[in-house]
């Protein structure tokens, strides 16, 4: 359990880092996190910390049907290539880094 003060301190530190993305891109990536929660390991694959290029390749393969999927094909088809690229970049930028 982290205290509010400690949390605020962390947020202030984080806020001092350069902003990586414009709001809409960040928000777009957030819509994916209900399933791909960065906070737990579940039956659904984790995305945090994976290189943007890898994520984009997977998303484009879901979109064109070349990668088998139960659900991601139906989701990825709702986005343009540019949108998927932006989301992949945002997700990669926010996760665990080596």
């Amino acid at each position: 359990m982290r205290s509010l003060a400690a949390f605020m301190a962390l947020v202030v530190m984080a806020a001092a880092l350069p902003a990586r993305a414009e709001a809409p891109v960040r928000l777009m990536a957030e819509t994916c996190l209900a399933c791909h929660s960065p906070e737990l390991h579940s039956t659904i694959p984790t995305l945090a910390g994976r290189p943007a290029g890898d994520l984009l390749r997977l998303l484009l393969a879901f979109r064109d049907g070349s990668r088998a999927a139960t659900i991601m094909d139906r989701i990825a088809k709702g986005y343009s290539r540019e949108e998927l690229g932006a989301i992949a970049g945002e997700l990669a930028g926010k996760g665990e880094r080596p």
Binding site: V11, A14, L17, A19, R20, P38, E39, G95, E96
Partner: peptide
């Protein structure tokens, strides 16, 4: 690592 996402800029 996991919670780092929550403290994004």
């Amino acid at each position: 690592g996991a919670t780092a996402l929550l403290a994004a800029p």
